[in-house]
Design a protein around this nucleic acid. Structure first.
Lengths: 213, 213
DNA sequence: CGACTACTTGAAAAGAGTCAATTCACGTGG
DNA sequence: CCACGTGAATTGACTCTTTTCAAGTAGTCG
């Protein structure tokens, strides 16, 4: 379970500016890869900020099908809920460190926390567009671009994929075979290179962007 | 453009409780079917509560492809944004009446408004599950169930569809032909009956629910 | 009645899923 | 150090679903 090489982004993330989010800068709790942070049906309340590592937030169907709503990386705040019950699951993809903000520790939600919550909504809308209006290649391309942008490694032409093909497939509404085939085709088309299955080198960003058009 | 028979839900919606949302109970502005409420890139700020009619919120791609994120009906509050710019378009599906809450008219966001904003997030997550993990029949079934629940007409075994097949297709990430075919197959399977193309009578809810499993 | 738009239907083509078999990377133990 | 076992990823062959393109039908408004 312990992951010896947790994913660490190359540069600090915008939302982690410390100044506004002092309330979140408490002790860091560590979660091993695969361990649960919260489950659907749990009492909601706490918010979390990722200090390092990657977290997935997902919904689950009775038959085991899974839809990953978002991957959260350093700086991201997650855990926003409508009522007092969790509607989604959250667990660590890699070894992850989280800071906690208990509900009610601030009587009123600050404008900044509201903004972060709304970022989750904007991301969900982007994600809906990806799932609703892109074919398999477009979805994978959008995913690689999103990962690079959030890691800030676009200029390095590198994208680290801390999650498995299964996670990627469940994020994009595809099967792992399709994800794998798309990557192979992109490799053959000289759009990218796979240093290893989790380490992508992007040769032509424009080609990726055209696929999401 | 004027729609003589605006869609009006059969019963008041839970979020429209009036007591908590007094700030939203100002004058009602009327929008003709098809008219724009706001566009991507507009300055954000105002929130809207639907008094009657139906509104669609959507993202648009350069080539005209469209992903509808949500349909809003009487009682719903929409217009939440992360920054000071709109990320989505909103316009009236039918003749619609909206009450406006200008940003900043309350210095702090009330807990109640936060809860409504988070409902949008929960809905987006449900929608992601529908798009990511259901086939065409499952998506249409989920859509019919959602519409019936929000109209409160499930006990009547009736679902009014105030929007076109194109709107439904753009909401579900399908083509209009596929939506039409799925409805025809459901009709043939005696799961539902089509009084008219916009008026569905549901004969077997369990059958619909099984499709979304 | 005629024109327009929305919706439905059909046939062929493309895309993604399924099932099965390898291959690959990595850690363990001989 | 190498053989082996394990889980992850890739590849192939085939099937099934959905899209695409092209008619055709049904309402609606002048």
């Amino acid at each position: 379970m312990f992951d010896a090489s947790p994913f660490i982004p190359a540069q600090p993330v915008a939302t982690c500016d410390g100044e506004r989010l002092t309330a979140l800068c408490g002790p860091v709790a560590t979660f091993n890869a695969g361990s649960e942070i919260y489950a659907e049906g749990d009492q909601a309340g706490a918010l979390y900020q990722v200090a390092f590592g990657v977290v997935r937030v997902y919904r689950l169907l009775a038959d085991g099908r899974r839809q990953i709503c978002a991957f959260h990386m350093a700086g991201d705040v997650f855990g926003f809920e409508a009522g007092n019950e969790r509607h989604v699951f959250a667990d660590a993809v890699t070894l992850a460190g989280l800071r906690t903000l208990k509900a009610g520790s601030q009587a009123d939600l600050s404008r900044e926390l509201y903004r972060l919550a709304m970022q989750s909504l904007t991301h969900a809308h982007d994600h809906l567009l990806t799932l609703g209006r892109n074919d398999a290649a477009g979805r994978v391309a959008a995913f690689l671009i999103e990962m690079a942008d959030r890691q800030g490694t676009r200029d390095d032409n590198r994208v680290a994929l801390p999650m498995s093909r299964t996670d990627i497939a469940d994020y994009l509404g595809l099967t792992i075979e399709t994800v794998s085939r798309v990557l192979t085709r992109m490799k053959e088309a000289r759009v990218l290179r796979l240093a290893s299955s989790r380490d992508v080198q992007v040769l032509r960003w424009e080609a990726l962007e055209d696929m999401t058009a």
